[in-house]
Write a protein that binds this DNA or RNA. Structure first.
Lengths: 215, 215
DNA sequence: AGACTCGCGTTACCGCAGGTAACATCTTAG
DNA sequence: CTAAGATGTTACCTGCGGTAACGCGAGTCT
């Protein structure tokens, strides 16, 4: 009945859990975001119900996997953000870190980016709009927002402003990165510089083109 | 055999197509992005195979639906972008237009945003990373990039820069909007202002907070 | 008129995915 | 030796995307 002497079994369960997650990782890396539970179970050398015992449902496995990668990526990003350098340099390093990560393992990040679909037939209608849209993006946005708020002096509304900017910048990074991955229109460094330029207000500062639209 | 006298049937087919799309629209509006083909067919008062005859597969219906909304939204955005006003005002109007749209019909835009999942079992493995990720986002990004390039004088690399910025800004808008829809941390106007501030370089211009991190 | 095609629509089915119930087994405690 | 409980299995259910095969009414050709 007591909960104190379960260390042994918990250890074992945790180890299995990690093994399963690593297997899932391999499958996702190979098959992309559409990896099926069957495939993951097979890769782990077991069968489906075990996966479900460990993770509840596919969303659970998704969440666990997402947390692993999100943690890892966030650590890298934090390191870039905390580097002792000029702000511009830190921002560029952060952007580059993110892009390097998605460039190295695109399948994984494609898997992480979109929602779990959900849609239980018998259950609720699910009006929680965008509630659990993309965990990685959300966490990155929050994190970046926190960092911005910690580091910068933004006046009275700093909290709100920082969070908005956090999510906004992450979204910019993500969308531009996704597009860049598909089309490869330039080098990573160029992309980084261009995005930093955008954040540095070059859009606002640029001159109008001569001969405007029609008039 | 000839292809000239098919106007009548084409009219009819087009009308049915439109009806089906409107039905699909209603269902997506009600059931969210997980709307099933069966549900859509039922809503339209017909059965599945007809949908497949008209749209090929779910991706086809998805594409058709996406095009409708994307066209409509892009028209609104172009209008905001083309308004005879200061650049800052136009940017704010554009952001606000987008946010108003997703606020008005969140389900629809949630449906539009994420990929079709794909994953044909017998066919290719699908290594086209992010190729067809989110049509709406991509089109908006391209469109905005074009507009930026047309309007602004950005020096030698204007084409590349404009496209990057287009996709980046759209991503920012999307991510911040998605987060805002879920949490509603502030009014729409505040969000718009904050994002415009970001684009106007306030991040770069802000002062460091007194007493930095640990040192 | 009668046969022929052809667009529109149906029922019934396949394969596969997520998810579960029920059974088998191996270890460990008393 | 027996009882409990984790570990793993097979076999199954549901629902979805997608398809094949058939039914039917309207125009067309001879």
């Amino acid at each position: 009945m007591d909960t104190t002497q379960s260390t042994d079994q918990e250890r074992s369960a945790d180890r299995r859990r990690r093994e399963l997650l690593e297997a899932a990782d391999r499958v996702v890396l190979r098959d992309g975001p559409g990896a099926s539970m069957n495939a993951i179970a097979a890769e782990a050398g077991i069968t489906k119900p075990i996966l479900y015992r460990h993770f509840g449902d596919k969303g659970g496995l998704y969440a666990a996997l997402a947390q692993r990668h999100t943690d890892a990526l966030l650590d890298s990003l934090r390191a870039a953000l905390d580097a002792p350098a000029e702000r511009r340099e830190r921002v560029e390093a952060t952007l580059d870190t993110y892009l390097a990560a998605i460039e190295a393992r695109p399948q994984v990040y494609r898997f992480l980016m979109h929602p779990a679909e959900g849609g239980q037939p018998g259950g609720d209608q699910g009006f929680d709009v965008g509630k659990l849209s993309a965990p990685l993006l959300r966490r990155m946005g929050e994190e970046l927002g926190t960092v911005i708020e910690e580091r910068l002096d933004l006046g009275p509304d700093s909290r709100r402003l920082a969070r908005i900017w956090g999510h906004g910048i992450v979204g910019m990074m993500h969308a531009a990165g996704d597009w860049w991955l598909g089309e490869r229109p330039c080098t990573r460094a160029e992309l980084v510089r261009s995005m930093a330029d955008l954040l540095w207000g070059r859009l606002a500062a640029a001159g109008d083109r001569v001969g405007g639209p029609g008039f």
